[in-house]
Simulated assay, not measured.
Amino acid sequence: MRVIPIPAQAGITGFESPAAEYCQLAMSLDELLVEHPSSTFLGIAQGESMQDVGIFDGDMIIVDRFETPRHGDVIVANFNGEFVCKILDMHHRLLLSSNQRFHPVTIHEYDDFSIEGVVTRSIRCHRQSPLLVVK
Score class of each variant (00 low, 15 high):
30 D>M: 08
111 D>M: 11
48 E>A: 06
19 A>L: 01
118 V>I: 06
31 E>M: 14
35 E>L: 06
80 N>S: 09
130 P>C: 05
110 Y>E: 07
89 D>A: 05
12 I>E: 02
89 D>T: 03
90 M>W: 08
16 E>Q: 00
96 L>A: 10
132 L>C: 05
135 K>T: 02
114 S>P: 00
122 S>K: 12
3 V>W: 04
8 A>F: 09
134 V>I: 14
14 G>V: 00
29 L>N: 13
38 S>F: 12
109 E>H: 11
96 L>Y: 10
101 R>Q: 14
120 T>S: 11
67 E>V: 10
51 Q>V: 05
44 I>E: 13
37 P>C: 13
109 E>F: 06
129 S>H: 05
35 E>N: 13
22 Y>A: 02
132 L>Q: 06
74 V>N: 09
68 T>Y: 12
61 I>S: 00
107 I>P: 00
37 P>W: 14
95 L>W: 09
83 F>N: 13
2 R>L: 09
98 S>G: 11
4 I>P: 01
5 P>D: 12
111 D>H: 08
51 Q>S: 04
74 V>L: 07
75 I>T: 05
5 P>A: 09
128 Q>G: 07
75 I>N: 09
31 E>Q: 15
82 E>R: 06
61 I>A: 02
66 F>Y: 15
62 I>E: 07
122 S>D: 11
90 M>C: 13
102 F>S: 05
102 F>D: 04
110 Y>Q: 09
125 C>Q: 08
88 L>H: 14
18 P>H: 01
